[in-house]
Amino acid sequence: MAYKTLVAASTKPLILSILAHGKSYGYQIIKNVENLSDGELSWTDAMLYPVLHRMESDGLIQSEWVIQENGRKRKYYTITNKGREEREVTRVQWMNVNTALNLLWGSNPQLELG
């Protein structure tokens, strides 16, 4: 299980990055995250949905109810332009962290110590 704070921090970029590929709904997002993380990131509904609402009211994503063939409803989310900008900002930040960690965990990190 990932650290709680890490999960919290990564939620928004993950959602934005998934939605950047196309519209999706809450449960599908959860499943996608599970698949991408080999089942390591297993989000609860109680975590995801409030965040989706928050992101919607912040204007990063927007939603619409879609009626399925079987008569059930689903709420689909799409990313907004503001959301794309936000994704770009967070992408750069995560990349920076990622690069740094990759180098550190590589065979010969250039470090000044002592």
Binding site: Y25, G26, Y27, D45, Y49, R72, R74
Partner: peptide, 11 residues
Amino acid sequence: FIEELEANLRD
């Protein structure tokens, strides 16, 4: 909220 959660629950 509840409607959406219900849809999710069913999925």
